[in-house]
């Protein structure tokens, strides 16, 4: 692709906007069974093929909207990290690859009206799931194959700290080929860094849940992604350490059927649940509410504080922060 297509065209598109009522592709072909799917059906079915149940890649904004109540969530701005620390160059400069990916994402976001931070392959969002606070860190496969470099690691640290701050569960959704080679050893160091991040969540007694999507491989699967309290995987997702080709070349034999798929990992004891996309949210909500039975539900908490305030007959009391559940009760009792 030339710079005209990758850079100028998206820029122009972002400026003038695509005509909203003429969708480019009304029909999409399932990349598994080859059947045609009408775009509305595809959206209604959360990008799952209605013919073969193949789970196609879900755009990150759609993914987040699917999991949060009423599709409402906020993304946080990610900490600034060094850009291209090694001054890496293969057939192309890494800094150019980054810029291309960033403008591609910006153009896509402008087209869909999505907001958020588009600097790298991770999005950190928070909102309510069944009325409770939740933090989700989701990988964006469309950004350099969702590869994990410093920015992604820093995003995971930020997500973990946000979860601790909000006393909320952390859900991480990898969709990644693994470490970002262009950041060399620093990308490898994201393995311990991301593990430290999720340790902070675990130390705070909060649930850490991994939702494995297609693909979750390499350095990501060999770090935080395999350390969840609960592992949920989407049907058919490829999950593993080494790539298929590398294994084939090493062992020089055909790989077993379904090798490294979510179902295969379930069979081999590496994931807890394989849940179809339509049941993801209810599964997550159920698991989280069972793991945190003592945690006051945010909505109930607000109601309780209000009721206590009313009982105390003091309307002008400041409503204490919801996070401080116990203190709120005490304040309500002693006007």
């Amino acid at each position: 692709m030339s710079w005209l297509e990758t850079y100028v065209r998206p820029k122009i598109k972002a400026l003038v906007g695509s005509p909203p009522d003429i969708p480019e592709n009304l029909w999409l072909k399932c990349d598994n069974c080859g059947q045609m799917i009408f775009h509305r059906d595809l959206e209604a079915n959360h990008h799952v093929c209605q013919h073969c149940n193949h789970h196609m890649r879900l755009p990150i904004a759609t993914r987040l909207a699917l999991l949060f109540d009423e599709g409402a969530y906020e993304t946080i701005e990610l900490p600034k990290t060094p850009v291209d620390p090694l001054k890496f160059r293969d057939v192309k400069r890494y800094s150019d690859r980054l810029k291309e990916s960033q403008s591609k994402l910006a153009a896509m976001a402008a087209g869909s009206g999505a907001v958020g931070d588009h600097r790298d392959a991770i999005r950190v969002a928070h909102g309510k799931m069944d009325g409770r606070n939740a933090v989700i860190a989701a990988f964006d496969f469309s950004f350099m194959g969702g590869s994990m470099g410093i920015a992604v690691g820093e995003g995971l640290v930020a997500a973990a700290r946000l979860a601790v701050l909000q006393k909320a569960p952390l859900i991480v959704i990898p969709a990644t080929g693994g470490a970002r080679m262009q950041e060399g050893i620093l990308s490898l160091m994201q393995m311990p860094r991301s593990i430290i991040a999720v340790q902070e969540v675990k130390d705070a007694g909060l649930p850490y849940i991994v939702l494995l999507t297609n693909p979750t491989t390499g350095g990501v699967s060999a770090s935080f992604a395999m350390l969840g309290d609960i592992h949920i995987a989407e049907p058919g997702a490829v999950i593993g350490f080494a790539g298929r080709r590398v294994i084939e070349q090493t062992v020089k034999e055909n790989l077993p059927e379904g090798f490294q798929t979510a179902e295969y990992l379930l069979e081999h004891g590496m994931v807890d649940i394989v849940a179809p996309r339509s049941q993801l949210k209810e599964t997550l909500v159920r698991v989280i509410s069972l793991l945190t039975p003592g945690a006051p539900d945010a909505v109930a908490d607000l109601a309780r504080v209000e009721a206590e305030l009313e009982q105390a007959g003091s309307a002008d009391l400041e409503i204490p922060a919801l996070a401080a559940g116990d203190d709120a009760g005490a304040a309500g009792g002693k006007p």
């Binding site: 393995m191 770090s223 350490f241 004891g269």
Partner: peptide
């Protein structure tokens, strides 16, 4: 590097590496 084999994957190469890093860190 870690061995890229069928059995290694089936027995959780990823999880084993992740836990080993965690072991060092703790």
């Amino acid at each position: 590097g870690a061995y890229p084999g069928v059995g290694a994957e089936e027995r959780g190469q990823s999880e084993a590496i992740a836990r080993s890093i965690e072991g060092c860190l703790q």
